[in-house]
Amino acid sequence: MKIKRQYIYAVLFISVVIPLATGLTFKVRPGPPVKKFYSAVNGLNEGDYAAVTLSYDPSTKAELNPMVIALCGHLFSRDVKIIMMNPLNNSIGNLGYELITRAASLYGKKENDDYYFLGYVPGEKSALQNMGEDFYSVYSKTFMKAELKDLPLYRDIKTIADAKMLIDISDGNSTVDLLTYVNTKYGVPMAAGTTAIMAGEYYTYLNSGQLLGMLGGLRGAAEYETMLGVNGKGRRGMAAQTFAHILVLLLVLAGNIEYFSGRRK
């Protein structure tokens, strides 16, 4: 007997809706990549600058927004200044600005003093490399069109190498580009947050120490939230994730049972 695909869709929908609607939560235990990420960020001191690049489309915000929110909270709580920008993706600007503004209001941080949102700049790889030569030949204004020359950032940061750390939140290969052009070439320490799909790729850079830490997928965000002691969308989604994963495993099992019983006949 074959299961109709519409039934599969319906059961999957229900298995996600019920845990979310009931607000069920499960405990997650942080794994090594997230612990490393946490302690790398914890190593930053008050007044240090951390550069955060958003290199994802809104389509993968499910996994990455919770990371950005948690990361901003972590950095702000340690009084680290944030330079947020999206030089490798032109479709995340307004969303990124909203996320950092919301996080800043929770911690009473001021725009263009405690944090800067610089938005998009064309040029991709040339822009990344140019940041290592002269930051202001790449960015001259913030996303909201404030002149950078008039802001405290201008005094503290000359090139990207003046940032103590670069954290890339991405849904594609951008972390490798940033490792190539910013970490290798200009020596800025890097950590990354990425979708689960890409996490497998980045383990090799984590293993070699080129990445100081990594958040992988919604689970990574949930682990990070656990370490920070905050409740965010990552932890909230883990119950639904559990049920849906079990469903997928059951479907694989059902498919195999059907296949082998069909072959025996």
Partner: peptide
């Protein structure tokens, strides 16, 4: 933002039905 997310979320349904049909 919600539309892009919604289009991509269709993939969740496809991977569920693919795990039933393809992984032998």
């Amino acid at each position: 933002v919600p539309m892009q997310a919604a289009i991509f979320s269709l993939l969740a349904f496809y991977i569920a039905s693919a795990s039933y049909r393809a992984f032998r």
